[in-house]
Computed example of a mutant assay.
Amino acid sequence: MTQNPKETVIGRITSVFGVKGWLKVFSFTDPIEGILDYTDWVLDLDGKRIPVKLEEGRRQGRAIVVRLKGINDRELARTYCGAEVRVPTTELPVLPEGEFYWLQLQGLDVFTVDGECFGRVDHLIETGSNDVLVVHATTGSIDQRERLIPYLPDKVVREVDLAGRKMIVDWDPEF
């Protein structure tokens, strides 16, 4: 299923947990327990949208385990494995000025401070030290290279214009 701009993926159900219908979830939120702040989920499983309600959840080691309303046995829970967990973007907390969700940066056109077009942000990668923009070339790009640009506000990323759908970076076109 294609990404709905009014929803964002916050996790993925990976496996069953125990025999009472609990599920293990890989959380994309930071901190990972943040996924538990959302109670109305839409599961995207093989193109089917399944609205579910989070009953309870907790951290279990390095993972999150949850119980969804109406799922009380292991075999029923197993049918949800592999589903993406989505929530409406309107449910996301408002960020402080100058901070952005990855989903807001995806699709922005990327230009150098000199006005040369690198392409469009396809996605981001978390590296540990800083996030990295993966920029794919477009028809107006200076070349057809894919670029990996560190997401370092004020150092590399000079401006993010969400309304204008563009980003200005201080990055050498040869790199």
Rank of each mutant, 00 (worst) to 15 (best):
D154I: 10
D172M: 11
F26E: 11
P153S: 05
T139I: 14
C117A: 14
G18S: 12
V157I: 15
R86P: 06
W41E: 04
K69S: 09
E116F: 07
D46F: 14
L76P: 00
G140K: 15
R67E: 11
I149S: 03
E174Q: 15
A77Y: 01
R78V: 06
M167N: 03
D109E: 13
L36T: 05
D73Q: 12
F28A: 02
T79L: 10
L105S: 03
D172P: 08
G82M: 09
Q106L: 00
Q106K: 11
Q3E: 12
I35T: 06
V66F: 06
D46M: 09
L92A: 06
K24F: 01
V135C: 04
V25F: 06
G57K: 04
R67A: 13
L68F: 07
P96M: 13
R59D: 01
K20C: 00
V160P: 04
T39F: 10
T139A: 15
D30C: 14
P51C: 00
D170G: 05
P51Q: 00
L108I: 10
P93Y: 03
A163G: 00
V160I: 14
V113N: 14
E33P: 01
K166F: 08
D30N: 15
S15V: 03
A77Q: 04
D143G: 00
L23A: 06
D114E: 14
R147N: 05
G18L: 07
E126P: 09
D122W: 08
R62T: 07
R12T: 13
D143M: 05
H136D: 10
T39C: 00
A163Q: 14
P96G: 13
F100A: 01
I64E: 00
T2E: 12
L105H: 03
L76F: 09
Y38V: 05
V42R: 12
N130K: 11
E84I: 01
V121Y: 01
